[in-house]
Amino acid sequence: MTTTDLGAQQPELDPAGSPELLQKIARRRRFRRRMLPYLFIFPWILGVVTFQAYPILDSFYHSFTIYDVFQPAKWIGIRNYVNLAEHAYTRKALMNTFLYVVVSVPGGLVVGLLQALLLNVKVRGLQLFRTLAIVPGTVPVAGAAAVSLFIWSPSLGLINSFLKAFGLKGQAWLSDPEMVKWVFIFMTIQGGIGMLIFLAGLQNVPQELYDASKIDGAKPIQTLFSVTLPMLTPYTLFNLLTSLIGAFQYFAGPMLMTGGGPAGGSLFYAQLIYQNAFTFFKMGHAAALSWILFVISVIVVVTVFRTSASWVYYEGGNN
């Protein structure tokens, strides 16, 4: 029964009224009933429009302007985009970010999956191990960055002290422009939330599939590749997409630990946006940079979605 039907069945309050009036009242009631759900979601719509849609459209406009917040924006066409393409540090930040995405996203997926497989094994103390595995992901980024500075410090750091204990030479982890980006990649390759999602996925794999594979004489490694991984592909897709989007926006660690240095070695794209907006007061450049990142992210995400039909298995689906 639809809301329209419900409205039509309401008893009229004024049976003595004219048919036109009654129809008008009925129409009004039907309209109100149709509108009621929208009224309930209105606060959410208001929030999205005010705090997301408007800033997004506003940033698009400002990407074609010179704008420093205090002076009125001045329209300059596509000049921001042209200038950014010429800046060596835009290319450097893009390359650093691509490297980060290409290495840390697959790395994070593999580590998350391996952790989940381990934590899916029924052993004593399983809950403790699961808790310990998720603890690193609960540490605030600023705290983790402060601790990491001590870990990677060339003179006082734990890692160099460890290497020294084995007679190995310490490295200038954070002060070498080439090495520093690998430090950040290494730091962020961890299971985290992705591991939890894989773990949830593992527990949803039907036991009868494992039973069937056992009857067929499949070895554990064959079961992993023929049963477990295919059944986890929807979770892999989700983790892949969220990791990709997050990796393109990687910001806090380098910002707090190295400020993007030395010599741009750890300058990632999101920090370049921040620098332009809030340090250089170049909101137009920052907006243009943001839109470039948005387009790149969309292309990557759409490509992943398009290819997902060939490698993601949905139970009850066509493939």
Binding site: P177, G261, P262, A263, Q275, T279, F280, F281, K282
Partner: peptide
Amino acid sequence: PVQSQCENLWQRAIEETMFGA
């Protein structure tokens, strides 16, 4: 009028020269 950027880019020039970039 662009002093913060001036600071930032000067540090960049020092580092690029030091590291031989």
